[in-house]
Amino acid sequence: MSVLIIAEHNNSELNSSTLNTITAGTELGDVDVLVAGENCADVANAVAAINGVNKVLHADASHYGHHLAEELTPLILGLAENYEHILAPATNFGKNLAPRVAALLDVAQISDITEIVSSNTFIRPIYAGNALATVQALHAKKVITIRTVSFEAASEGGSAGVESISAGEQVGLSSFEGQELTVSERPDLATAKTVVSGGRGLGSKENFAIIEALADKLGAAVGASRAAVDAGYITNDKQVGQTGVVVAPDLYIAVGISGAAQHIAGMKDSKVIVAINKDPEAAIFNFADYGLVADLFDTVPEMTNSTKIS
């Protein structure tokens, strides 16, 4: 049987979360990818060139332009009968959309899987990653969201066909008003190779600049603990943790972060973890490969200014 993947994109560029989802999909069967949006032919063509894609279904309509769950759901329901698995990334896009599809197919959804055991059995974290559940889906059709950091990104090199499919009627329950995207020269938090995160130890919004300076030196993304977000030092989209973004970079540097379970859940799969904290008892040191017990206001600028880092 085949797998339908719902592509995440902004009508001009594919979101890298789709690449991870395609890799997961290829473990389950032949992968078709739905690219639904407005004037998104470029994205459909880009998806056709990804390894592992069998066919791209391209649906174009103004009411798909903002990827509203209410609008996309009937389109996906119309395609569902040909597929055993329907996959979306477990990003806010996929989390918003997939359960609406599952409910109307009258099947369970398996959320945020980190491993595929078999065509109906999956591993997923529960309790903020403090336990791993092995879950067997009982319905013939499975709606699944994929934890993107747990699957490699699919590479380019495919040559799938692109099939235009007709758009459905506009549902009109919701409408898009606007968005405020964080504009940054830095890499995307979810996919960066290096992440520098700050916690409550920074003490103020102004002091967060030293985190940003180190991140820029390392070509890293900036993250934060929930405590730092709650204290207003930085916006919520930078929150690493159970209730924020889950990251797994090659290098994660936690600065002034105590190491609450909910934060650990969002970064513990990083390859190398560094903790800088003046409290030697901070829980973060239990998870760090390299710990430095020191005042962050001395050590972070010292790192940033080091001539040993190019």
């Binding site: 791993l132 067997q136 889906a137 319905h139 040191f285 998870f287 790192m303």
Partner: peptide, 23 residues
């Protein structure tokens, strides 16, 4: 039920690292 939970396990733990003395 639409799924069954077959087992719940502890996640793999990270092995303890080292404390360094300086930047």
């Amino acid at each position: 039920a639409g799924f069954t939970v077959q087992k719940v396990q502890e996640p793999p733990t990270r092995k303890a690292g080292i404390i360094v003395d300086s930047v």
